[in-house]
């Protein structure tokens, strides 16, 4: 599944579409501690987290994960949203818990 296909599934609210929507989602990664995400983040993974600050975007781009999915009703703060638009990073959100959001994406990976 590509990032675009995840967007088109309609399951998640789109915070920012981003540019690399043809990127293939390789896995699902759930984590809220940025140092752990930094060292364990999986290239190409959809990252499900409740951390919606500017550092989340930095970790995503440094680890080459494919997109951010904010769970539990969280959203990007204002600075992070501006940065996501500037850096063309795909960010989605949902009211569902991390596990359910991650499970949904995992089920679509095939």
């Amino acid at each position: 599944m590509t990032v675009k296909e995840l967007i088109d599934s309609g399951k998640f609210e789109v915070v920012n579409v981003g540019a690399a929507t043809d990127t293939k989602i390789t896995d699902v990664f759930c984590c809220d501690l940025l140092s752990i995400a930094m060292s364990r983040g999986i290239e190409g993974a959809a990252w499900v987290t409740v951390m919606g600050n500017i550092n989340t975007l930095a970790v995503l781009s440094l680890t080459d994960m494919s997109c951010i999915v904010l769970a539990e009703g969280t959203n990007l703060d204002q600075a992070a949203k501006a940065k996501a638009i500037e850096q063309k990073i795909t960010v989605l959100r949902t009211d569902e818990p991390e596990f359910k959001a991650g499970l949904y994406i995992h089920g679509k990976l095939g």
Binding site: D32, L33, L34, S35, I36, A37, S39, M51, N53, N55, T56
Partner: peptide
């Protein structure tokens, strides 16, 4: 609160 401080730095 920003997601740091896990003692992994």
């Amino acid at each position: 609160d920003l997601g740091f401080g896990a003692g992994m730095g």
